Simulated assay, not measured.
Amino acid sequence: MTTTATLPADPPAIRGMIRSGSYDGVTAGLANGFVQANLAVLPRDLAFDFLLFCQRNPRPCPLLEVIDAGEVEPSFTAPGADIRTDVPSYRVYEHGELVAEIPSLEQIWRNDLVSFLMGCSFSFEAAMSDAGIPIRHQEAGSNVPMYITNIATQPAGVFSGPMVVSMRPVAQDKIVRAVQVTSRFPDTHGAPVHIGDPGAIGIRNLEAPEFGDAVEIRAGEVPVFWACGVTPQAVALNCKPPLMITHSPGKMFITDRRDAEYAVI
């Protein structure tokens, strides 16, 4: 299987490899400088409620693009791409149950499906690295750890549920810098929502994330938590819509838009 080290840096080329099945791994560290996106796909009759949910919860669900019902091209963020094939892996939820994890949506696509692309924290990791803040899951070649919290989202229509957060260990003397760097990217989750004690946001065990892989927290480091675009999957488990399709955690849609376009100076 192709590794991240052998992948090209050009987003269309990476998407082409994903579409062909040559790469199906996590996308952290790929196409540095380009925005990655979370995906949620819903039937048209639920789309307005979900749009409202995103507007009320911009930290975990910062909207980048909404693709019209039945359309498959994200013409604003990645012209020429196909939302059905260009994500390494998809999850299919029916009535709150995860029923499938598949490499393509072509066989189940419907003309009433509306696709939502939301900013991803992988997009600010290059800026963190540039600021001298190591990214532990990239160093380990693993997926970022993600946890379901006790932080409630703002309900909208049929949608409600807990916020999911991603966690990165940060040295104590670099925490202020991490906040400064990531706060410049509000469209890809922005500044942390919590720093320190995981129990304060309902996380019982950092070694048992609900999504992704646990990472080592070394002496002198503090767990830092950012809102996460996997939140819609926790919402699906909570609200049980008839159908919701998402990306598999850590396996994002890579856009052609540059991180700098979304940075606040």
Rank of each mutant, 00 (worst) to 15 (best):
162 P>T: 01
134 P>E: 03
23 Y>H: 05
155 P>N: 07
191 A>N: 01
108 I>R: 08
50 F>C: 05
214 A>R: 08
65 E>H: 13
186 P>F: 02
132 G>N: 01
25 G>L: 06
138 Q>M: 15
176 V>I: 09
152 A>P: 06
13 A>E: 15
210 E>M: 13
154 Q>C: 15
98 L>K: 14
27 T>L: 07
48 F>R: 12
168 R>Y: 00
229 G>N: 08
90 Y>N: 01
214 A>L: 02
46 L>K: 06
47 A>H: 10
228 C>P: 02
103 P>Q: 00
192 P>H: 00
209 P>G: 06
224 V>T: 07
129 S>P: 01
66 V>R: 08
65 E>W: 14
89 S>Q: 13
154 Q>G: 07
200 A>G: 04
88 P>K: 14
85 T>S: 02
109 W>E: 01
209 P>H: 09
212 G>W: 11
250 G>T: 04
123 S>K: 03
228 C>K: 02
182 T>G: 00
217 I>T: 13
152 A>E: 13
201 I>D: 01
169 P>I: 13
39 L>V: 15
27 T>K: 08
63 L>P: 02
92 V>Y: 10
34 F>Q: 07
92 V>L: 13
144 V>P: 01
65 E>M: 13
90 Y>Q: 00
219 A>H: 10
59 R>T: 06
5 A>K: 15
179 V>P: 01
124 F>C: 08
251 K>P: 03
123 S>T: 15
108 I>F: 05
130 D>G: 09
104 S>C: 05
9 A>L: 15
101 E>T: 14
5 A>Y: 08
95 H>P: 03
194 H>C: 08
195 I>H: 02
115 S>H: 05
30 L>I: 03
242 P>K: 04
41 V>G: 08
219 A>D: 12
144 V>Q: 02
135 I>W: 03
132 G>A: 03
116 F>D: 01
26 V>D: 14
17 M>Y: 13
117 L>E: 00
195 I>L: 04
200 A>R: 12
86 D>Y: 10
49 D>L: 06
226 W>F: 14
201 I>F: 04
252 M>Y: 10
81 A>L: 13
173 D>L: 10
142 S>Q: 05
69 A>D: 06
126 A>E: 07
15 R>M: 08
12 P>Q: 07
187 D>T: 05
247 H>N: 08
9 A>E: 15
224 V>N: 02
100 A>Q: 11
52 L>I: 06
162 P>Q: 02
197 D>S: 07
256 D>A: 01
129 S>Q: 07
233 Q>L: 14
169 P>V: 10
169 P>M: 04
144 V>N: 04
232 P>A: 13
35 V>K: 00
73 E>I: 15
109 W>Q: 09
248 S>L: 11
196 G>P: 07
185 F>W: 02
164 V>P: 04
13 A>N: 10
218 R>N: 09
47 A>G: 09
86 D>E: 09
86 D>Q: 09
29 G>Y: 11
75 S>A: 14
55 Q>R: 12
76 F>K: 11
101 E>G: 10
100 A>C: 05
181 V>D: 02
77 T>Q: 05
210 E>A: 10
235 V>C: 11
192 P>G: 02
5 A>H: 12
49 D>Y: 06
235 V>W: 07
